[in-house]
């Protein structure tokens, strides 16, 4: 069958592995139709060609197209930092309940950003915010004091849930639809890695991620105004076990948009106002070959958060330079 498929071009090689067995698997039931196969393959390849990179991303199993994810992530970050806009609406803006995965080393501001998002969503007059973590917060994130002082009622809308094991987390997510009187506007999971440490299986990881996405999608359908999903995970260590790497790959299948957080290098942090307690750098990525976006975040002593966009660094790969910076 190799000879009947002369339509490969170098740019399609990526897709080829996925559907490599298409021709080899032909059996006798299909013999009458086989004559038109070469025409079909041409037209199908033209579809792949037309769709270009976005298509091959979809083909390798990214649940959402990278472009859509990129937009969702940018909106998510901008929205969670501008009160009145609304994190939860990110799902609606993209037409689906795309979540956001926050990645970073311990101390890189993941929980602080998650908490800031919770306060913003709680102040919107929509459904409650569910904040799920393995254990109670050890210390209050910077955003706490300012948020609480401004509006104590906001905190009452944040429901904290602490399932102590993966099993109990799965039970919690599975049964959430039974009793939610008012659909939540935002579902937050802090430290998914702590639960995934209990298992090494790709299936268990996919089950948890899919359950999160499906639960958020269910609540989005209930409320009509969307239910956002934000998940934090400890960034992969340098000498990373294979199981953890596979888990991250599986997670990104369900949460294709990632926001990487890291502490701002001291020389850059010095440019921030003196009263800034912590400075962070946030990098958004939706897949290889897509332009990266960067922001600087800082938390002041009063809990106020400041954000500014960092100019995109020039891409090191010529192939990426060719990518349009704002896909239409």
């Amino acid at each position: 069958m190799e000879d009947t498929a002369p339509h490969y071009t170098p740019s399609l090689e990526k897709s080829r592995g996925i559907i490599a067995h298409w021709g080899a698997g032909l059996d006798k039931r299909w013999a009458p139709l086989a004559s038109s196969l070469s025409e079909l393959s041409l037209s199908q390849w033209n579809v792949f060609k037309r769709e270009g990179l976005a298509q091959s991303n979809a083909l390798i199993g990214r649940v959402s197209s990278a472009e859509r994810g990129l937009r969702a992530g940018m909106e998510a970050l901008q929205q969670l930092l501008s009160p009145g806009a609304g994190v939860g609406r990110e799902g609606c803006a993209t037409g689906e309940g795309t979540g956001l995965l926050l990645l970073g080393e311990p101390g890189s501001g993941k929980t602080a950003l998650l908490f800031a998002a919770a306060l913003v969503a709680a102040g919107e007059g929509r459904g409650p915010v569910l904040f799920v973590a393995r254990r109670a917060l050890q210390s209050l994130p910077p955003g706490w004091k300012a948020g609480a002082a401004r509006d104590p009622l906001k905190l009452q809308k944040i429901h904290f849930l602490y399932p102590p094991s993966l099993r109990e987390l799965l039970q919690l997510l599975s049964s959430m639809h039974e009793r939610a009187a008012q659909p939540p506007s935002l579902l937050l999971l802090d430290g998914i890695d702590e639960y995934l440490a209990e298992t090494s299986g790709a299936q268990a990881c996919a089950h948890l991620a899919a359950l999160l996405v499906d639960t958020a999608a269910h609540f989005s359908g209930c409320s009509g105004s969307g239910c956002g999903l934000l998940v934090t995970m400890r960034g992969p260590a340098e000498a990373e076990p294979e199981a953890a790497s596979l888990q991250l790959t599986v997670l990104q299948r369900y949460l294709p948009t990632c926001l990487w957080l890291e502490l701002e290098p001291p020389d850059l942090a010095a440019a921030w106002p003196q009263d800034s307690e912590q400075c962070f750098r946030a990098r958004l990525s939706s897949g290889p070959g897509f332009p990266k976006q960067e922001w600087s975040l800082s938390f002041g002593h009063d809990g106020e958060m400041a954000i500014s966009q960092v100019s995109c660094q020039a891409s090191q790969h010529p192939s990426q330079k060719a990518e349009p910076s704002s896909p239409s």
């Binding site: 649940v63 299986g201 299936q203 996405v213 596979l246």
Partner: peptide, 18 residues
């Protein structure tokens, strides 16, 4: 699942995820 690609079968875990 209805909202995302997930199936509990072994083939999904192996061929799709892994």
């Amino acid at each position: 699942f209805a909202s995302c690609h997930y199936c509990s079968c072994p083939a999904f875990a192996f061929s799709v995820l892994r």
